[in-house]
Design a protein around this nucleic acid. Sequence first.
DNA 1: AACCGTTCCAACCGCGACTGA
DNA 2: GTCAGTCGCGGTTGGAACGGT
Length: 214
Amino acid sequence: MKRNSCEKQTINRGAWSSQEDEKLVKYICTHGEGRWRTIPKAAGLLRCGKSCRLRWINYLRPDIKRGNFTEDEDDLIIKLHALLGNRWSLIAGRLPGRTDNEIKNHWNSRLSRKLIRMGVDRSKPRWISRVPRAEDPALTSETCKSSPLCRDRVPDDGGVSREASCREDHLSPTSDLNLDLTISLPFALHGCEGQERSHESAEETHSPTLLLFR
DNA sequence: AACCGTTCCAACCGCGACTGA
DNA sequence: GTCAGTCGCGGTTGGAACGGT
C-alpha cells in the first residue's frame, strides 16, 4: 500500500486559518496552480498538497460563485445528474463558478430530498441504451478528435482528461428529460485578477443561459 | 436557558488513473 | 512492462449553526 503523504507528521489538519489562506492564495497567484505536492513547503504551509489543492479548488479560487443555488442551477444539476450520475466533477464543469464539492453537498443535503418529495428515484441515473457511455469502445479518441465539439478543447484543469471529457460530451440527453441546455462560449478562468469580485456581483450577472461546455 | 435533533458545509480519506523514470 | 510518485474524484465525516421543544 502506498503511503499517503498526508499521513506524515507535523501536518496541520482541520479548518484553515486566514493566514494559511493568505499564504496559499499569494503563492498560487505568483506561481500558478499545479505541483500540489511541492506547494505547501514552497508556500510555507504545514499542510499536505492534497489539502492545499482542495482548499484552493473549493474555497479560494477567485472565480468561485458562492451563495445559494438558483432555480436554474438546481434544474441543471438535476438534469445532469440524471444523465451522468454521481460524476460531480463533470457536473461542476457545466456550472461555472460551482465546485464539485459544493454541488455534491447541495445534492446530498437538499436536491436529493427535494426529489424524494417529488417522488423521483434519485438513485438511478438514466442512461439511454443506444448512447455510448465513456467506456464504450466504439467511441474512440479518433471519434472524439474529429468532433467539432472536442477539437478545439483546451485540456481543462478540472481533472477530467480531455478524452474522457469529450466522450461525456457525446452523450445525448435522455428522451424523457427536457434538456433544454444552451451551448455557450467556454467559461474562462480569470485567475487572480478577479479576486476582488464580490459574490454579490457574481449573483447579479447570473444569466439564465447556463454554460454546458468549457 | 438548556437540551436535542437536523442541516449544512469544509475537510478528510481511500482508491483508481495518470505519468515519468 | 513495471513501479513509485502524484493527482483528481467521489464518498464520508466532524463540527458549527440553526431550529424546535
